[in-house]
Amino acid sequence: MPNPDGKSGVTPAAEAGATPGLLELFLACSRIGLSGFGGVLPLLRHMLVEQRRLLDGPEFNALLGLCQFLPGSNVINLAVCVGARLHGVRGAIVVTAGLLIAPFALMMGLAALYGLWGHLAIVQDMLRGIAAAGAGLLFATGLKMAQAMHERWLYLPFAVLILVAMVVLKLPLPPLMLALLAVTAGLAWWRARRALAEAGKVPRP
């Protein structure tokens, strides 16, 4: 980890000189990491946009758009963008490490407890109950995402296809993801071009 000296570092985004130092940023992110149950993103947004005013709403949304668009953890992607904006490479490392280190240590503590007592019937029963509730949360998340989908009737078959490919056929995801994404994104691209052509804005593809 870089030296959290609290003062140095270039601060391109500092308009009012209110950009917090590296140590302060690390501690603020650690607090968020440790209090984010079931989602760190809303807390990160609150700290950055409302509490410290390091970014305004549209700036945050633009960065979040990038981070949700690209593969990987949205939270880590966002931490890198925001940290880089505030303090360059050291900022990117400090914000990401801040969000991860404390909850990682806590997780390792829980892992050690699981290693010690995971075989006990009561622990297994509780974890089975939690896994059942967690599976419900996953299904609900999937349904909400499906509800928010653009042109559902057209794209939902691809959701079913990848579900069957993973659960029943047990195909490896990397080639599957790239192949299906080429099809779905190609379809979306073609439909967008056709819609534009029908509106007379661009020549037919």
Binding site: L137, M149, L181, G186
Partner: peptide, 29 residues
């Protein structure tokens, strides 16, 4: 335009994968 197309294309795959996650966790538990 390709960025918007990828975003539209990712959505159904994410839906399928998140539901597959729920299914596999429930089946494994």
């Amino acid at each position: 335009p390709w960025r918007a197309a990828i975003q539209v294309g990712v959505a159904p795959l994410a839906v399928g994968l998140v539901c597959a996650s729920g299914w596999l966790i429930a089946a494994s538990a």
